[in-house]
Design a protein around this nucleic acid. Structure first.
Lengths: 252, 252
DNA sequence: ATAATAGTGTCTCTCAGACACTATTAA
DNA sequence: TTAATAGTGTCTGAGAGACACTATTAT
């Protein structure tokens, strides 16, 4: 493979199109909150890498993702959306860029850079077609368990960064609203917050925050198994999260 | 150029190393705060693209950056550091990843993805060697003026995102401390905050925040041209910013 | 009526802003 | 002593947490 050096005075200037190009991939960290064994938990989607010797990390669990296809993907985020739809059937998730990881060492096949996207989705319904498609090569895992696994590539680092970002932003944004199906009740939303943060929140303070945030729209009233029915809500703008003026527990 | 499709069941699985690879670049948005014509302002470093017809955007101003060199750069951030040192001589800036921009359309030479890094540095001393190296092809511009220029590629978008990120984080972090030379006084630091935010801050509230933040270490006392000398300070940890418990002006 | 869950009112604490005040230097 | 700048003290207000209270449903 021929490589030509980028001369110092022309950084990014004259076009070395015959320079060695890194591999370019996109990976998706898809989170949801779902009831597993009666207790809701934060889950992340992993896929199993093919069990072939010529492949890097055969049989290991990895984040869903893969090479950018310059023919099909107009942009990086299109690529991320395609990868996620392939594995979950979800068409319009909340997507935000997490960051990129690139180095000579992260992929044994050569210098590679991945663009990581955080996806927040409502728990996908398990219907026949998705089961058929994802039965053996994709599964949802408890997020913290997954972060402790020995994942392929540097995916454990990326997942850890995604968890840090998510838990950090949950302190002062409306992000968890993207993790449950609409319409939802405020007690249900509070439970999602508590699952992600791993600690209980005060009901009164929580409700004030959410309603003052102005990102909710009233929907139908929802009755549960017992007790008083609750007001149902939808998200006003599914493309962006709302920032609250302060964090939960500002001074610990 | 031969391309092979990534088959659906093996996304990122079997290794299509002969697939068409996007171009991979790194760009740096280097900010500083400096006195220009007696009033300090936020400035950004731009470089002029070579004025040759075969080059994209000849003669246009652009962010410093360029192709990842798989021989020299072990990681993306190493590449960013190298690009910045090339243009400014600054060796250890505060660097944080801003995000990545990739699409089929952003570079006329083909599908390309750039990894953007935000760099915060103290105003570089204008000495003979840096002048010689950067006289005609690099210059510092007022950041808002630069954002209105017609820059090369999608660099205007990237610069706008950098400004949004910087101004956003300045509301609740110690980032501006990386924009001036150490040791600095609290009044000087406050001025940097005010320049970045574009609005005045209360002295008493500002000092309480900074000192309670615990990221400053006492240094020598510094005398100005007139009035009482001020305590000088250094940053305790040059690798990370401190987060304050609340934003400035929480409720507008 | 009771259990269960939804939703509200009130008090307190913390921290940011406003702004008046004191402190230290040079001329 | 005055100008200039550095640094402090005190009051107020907004919003988060604690927690007791009321409201609405099914049985």
């Amino acid at each position: 493979m021929k490589t030509r050096r980028d001369t110092p005075h022309a950084s990014g200037g004259t076009a070395p199109l015959d320079i060695a190009r890194p591999l370019t991939t996109v990976d998706v960290i898809a989170f949801t909150v779902r009831d597993a064994a009666a207790t809701p938990r934060l889950e992340v989607l992993l896929v199993r890498r093919p069990d072939e010797a010529h492949d890097p990390f055969p049989g290991r669990w990895a984040l869903p993702g893969g090479f950018v296809d310059v023919e099909r993907d107009a942009t990086l985020v299109d690529c991320a959306r395609r990868k996620l739809a392939q594995k979950t059937g979800v068409e319009a998730p909340y997507l935000e860029q997490l960051g990129s990881w690139g180095s000579a060492a992260r992929d044994p096949r050569g210098w590679s850079a991945t663009h990581a996207y955080l996806a927040l989705i409502a728990p996908p319904q398990v219907n026949a077609s998705t089961v058929a498609r994802t039965a053996n090569d994709a599964a949802w895992f408890d997020a913290d368990d997954a972060a402790r696994k020995r994942l392929a590539f540097d995916h454990a680092d990326i997942l850890a960064a995604a968890l840090t970002r998510l838990r950090g932003k949950v302190e002062y944004t409306s992000l968890p609203a993207f993790l449950i199906a609409e319409p939802f009740t405020l007690p249900a939303l509070q439970q999602v917050y508590e699952v992600v943060l791993g600690r209980p929140l005060d009901k009164s303070a929580f409700r004030k925050r959410m309603l003052d945030g102005g990102f909710l729209v009233e929907d139908v009233v929802i009755a549960g198994d017992a007790g008083r029915p609750a007001q149902g809500w939808r998200i006003r703008d599914r493309d962006r999260a709302t920032l609250f003026p302060r964090s939960f527990k500002s001074g610990e």
